[in-house]
Simulated scan of single mutants.
Amino acid sequence: MGLVLGTGAGATLAAWTDPVLAEGDFRASVFDVEANTSSPYDPAGPWMSPEDDPSAFDVDTTPMVPGSVRYAPLALRTVTGSIGGTVMLEGAAVEADGSGDADLGSALRYRIIAANNCDGSAFTTTATYLIGGPSSTVPLTTGQDPSSPAPLPAATADAPGPVVRLCLELTLPQGAADSEDLQGRTMAARWTVIAVSESP
């Protein structure tokens, strides 16, 4: 605030300032996500933070024969006190012991839905597909469409956020029977979930 006093024409003007300070306490929001890969799903966990294990899925693919199907559940939630956000699954990082016709990682296909149950009955035409579709599966290296992330609700000050449950279906197609080179091959695939906080 400024105050100016004048004593007439030609007089010297003097100015006093009276600074008024605005004061506030500020705190950055908290965004933290944890995952639960128990199978079958156990709400008690264990719940793991990215510092514990940054990968969402770690699927055992052996032993599989053409036509085999495996299921892997994943539960996500924000930790107590966290704001909400979105999650997106990247394509898998695949390590296989073969190449070409002997590459088990290239032969496998998968899809992922949002569902409380994780078995074949959950993959209906009306399910919410994050990757793949009701009648389609994709290579393991295919990730979720970046324009369609899954919402991850905020937590409260006293409790974690609502749980978002996903289900991965992994298939070795019947057509793999045409490649004897796949027999005995192994691979490891790891999927990573990218969580992004909501805009303020």
Rank of each mutant, 00 (worst) to 15 (best):
D25I: 04
G85F: 02
Q144F: 03
V59F: 03
M88F: 01
D25V: 07
P46T: 15
D52P: 08
Y129R: 04
D103L: 09
Y71G: 07
S148Q: 12
A72Q: 14
S38T: 15
V30G: 00
D58N: 09
E90W: 01
D42K: 04
L104W: 13
T142L: 02
S147N: 07
A75W: 06
L76A: 14
G105N: 03
I83T: 14
T78H: 11
P46R: 15
P40E: 00
S38L: 02
G91M: 11
P54R: 06
D97H: 14
D25F: 06
F57N: 03
G120R: 12
D58V: 06
P50G: 06
A127F: 05
I112T: 11
D60A: 14
R111M: 09
G105A: 08
N117A: 15
L140H: 13
T142D: 06
T78L: 10
A96S: 15
P149T: 05
L130Q: 10
A93T: 15
F31G: 04
V79L: 13
P63V: 13
P73E: 13
F57P: 02
G132D: 07
P43C: 04
L76M: 14
D52V: 12
L108A: 08
A56G: 11
S147M: 05
Y41E: 01
G45W: 09
G143C: 05
S29E: 13
P54N: 09
V138D: 09
D53C: 02
P46S: 11
L104H: 14
A28H: 09
Y41M: 01
P19G: 05
G10H: 01
A96E: 08
G85L: 10
F31A: 06
I131Y: 01
A11M: 04
Y71L: 13
T142S: 05
L76R: 06
V65L: 07
E51I: 00
D145M: 05
L108F: 05
R111C: 04
V65S: 12
G105W: 04
D58K: 00
R111Q: 13
P146F: 09
F57C: 02
G100M: 06
A96K: 10
M64T: 11
G98V: 05
S82Q: 09
G45V: 09
T125P: 15
D53N: 12
Y110A: 04
D42F: 05
G45I: 07
A115P: 02
G81V: 13
